[in-house]
Simulated assay, not measured.
Amino acid sequence: MDAERTKSLSKEQTKQNVHVYTEHYEKERIYVRQVGSNRYSLAAERRERLEAVPRVITTQLGDGLHDNWHIIEPGDDVFRSQTLHLHFVTIQPNGRNDGHGHQNEALFYVLDGHGYEIHDGKRYDWKKGDAVAVHNDCVHWHNNPDTEKRAVCLVMKPKPLSLFLGLSYQGKIGYKPENDHLWEPRSEWLTARPEGDAEVPKVFPAEATPFEWGPFGYTRQIAGEGVPLRIKGTDAYLQHIPAGSRSGRRWRMPDEMLLVLEGEGYDLHWDVEVEIDDQFYARIAKKPTRWEWKAGDVIWVPQNTVVQRFNTGEGTAELVGASNRVFNQLGYSRIHYFENAPEYDESQAGADASR
């Protein structure tokens, strides 16, 4: 603990309570899960898993030092997905975590409190409602200067994919290769961070862009193509559903993970199977499955699913959701809408009438 404090950048930080993560786990951690089968088609394994796995998770964060921060990762006993790793980070009053770095990026959405990042020696302030980027190969730690209130963030990161691709360097400040005499003196890390990348903002403030009506409903993008935030592998958005209303009904290939911030309601999921003949044909389930959710729950929408979301509460339902952006690069960027959100159709009709 004392050794870690000496690595801080200022006298202010040496007075902080430092949460040091252990280097070892009680049992082996599964970073990437094997995909195996005795047959070429994996459809049966997929169907069995989807029929057996609950798609709503009730989170239990707690309110102390030993918070239950885990949500979804590949090593779960009930395996859902390894496209994203989803978890909470809590920073206790006047606290920070220990300095570390990893090759995978991480997207933070600040749920409560305020604080700042130290990224490669630079400070980036954040507050509730902001989206924060931890870029690839970034040495960082998270700080909470509030002496009375903790800060809580939702972390969405494509860590399993990064590790599957061999981007496995991660460690605490002070790590060096063994057998120092075998290596040249250290030099700049030149195989990442393309020209101009350092100029892209690391914090996307809550007030930076407005919510807008679209086919899926009332949403605000916080990470994705065109969003000025230094995030490459994760798309994320906020969604508000008015009381008594519903989202659009859409079909897309990426799976999705959403934290319910406020309200209650349910999802309808129409699973999609494939029929392979002269080309791929979709076979959409005649009947959907229904998944009830409330504030604090996490919804998992599997890959290749038609989804529609309903608000059954008296107030606005608020959610934050994320998916892995690599699907877009692989050719699965298209979204098909069977039905638009009713308010969007009303706004379009109004716009047409005014022309």
Score class of each variant (00 low, 15 high):
R186C: 01
L107Q: 04
P288V: 02
R39I: 07
P210R: 12
N328Y: 13
L9M: 15
E12P: 02
S354C: 02
N311D: 05
H142F: 11
A208F: 12
Q239V: 12
A44L: 12
Y169K: 10
W270H: 11
P342L: 06
V298D: 05
W213A: 05
K232M: 12
S347H: 14
E195P: 00
P185T: 07
K128N: 04
D98H: 13
W300Q: 08
F338Q: 08
T147G: 03
V32G: 11
K127M: 08
P74V: 10
R230S: 07
R29H: 15
N311Y: 01
A317F: 06
V32N: 09
V298K: 05
D197V: 01
E117W: 06
L50Q: 14
V307I: 02
E4N: 05
N179M: 10
G315V: 05
V56A: 12
E4P: 04
Y337Q: 05
D146S: 14
A322S: 14
T305Y: 04
R290P: 00
D267K: 02
P254V: 09
E26V: 07
T22I: 01
D352G: 00
T305A: 06
T191E: 14
W69Q: 09
E264G: 03
R33P: 03
A282C: 06
L42Y: 13
N68E: 10
V56I: 15
F88P: 00
T234F: 05
H269L: 15
P342M: 09
D277T: 15
I71F: 06
R186I: 07
E188G: 00
G95E: 06
P201N: 03
T14R: 10
